[in-house]
Amino acid sequence: MSGDLQRELEDLFAHYAEVIDDGDLERWPEFFTDPSLYRIVSKENWDKKLPMSLMRCESMGMLKDRAFASQKLNVYGPRAWRHFVSQIRARVEGDRIVARSNFVLYETLIEHQPQVLCLGRYLDVLVRQEGKLLFAERICVYDNAIIPGSIVLPV
């Protein structure tokens, strides 16, 4: 992989995390192709090849519905989210880029210590459309079997 692509992915992944952490959720679907596949899956289900996800979107519409519900409809307490993404490694396969990286997601609730909400791998397939890299697939496989509380936003 070229240094240029590595830097492009680092910037993209940082931007993705920023949009969620900053609460600009209406911009989150813009990172995806249509159709696409976004899933949050436990390592347990992933390893056992069980198809259940914690979150699953298959289209621009579903991504927008999730973003809208998270921002306007769901009821949850105030919190801060902070993603840490590292070890991005990618390879080019024809017109696709297959990438893998690690993430840690901290959640801080009011008057609580920050806690790791989930931690795991991003398994991504990206394609370039009109010069821009987009996720055709982003599968978030988290290691911790038990989620502390709820995951109120996309990861």
């Binding site: 769901n74 949850y76 989620i147």
Partner: peptide, 26 residues
Amino acid sequence: TQRRLRQANLMGPAGLVSMDDGEIMI
């Protein structure tokens, strides 16, 4: 089965419905 997997978006810790319940119980 695909319907079940899609509708499961409403349930669980990230459920469009169930997250409200988890949060309100706390």
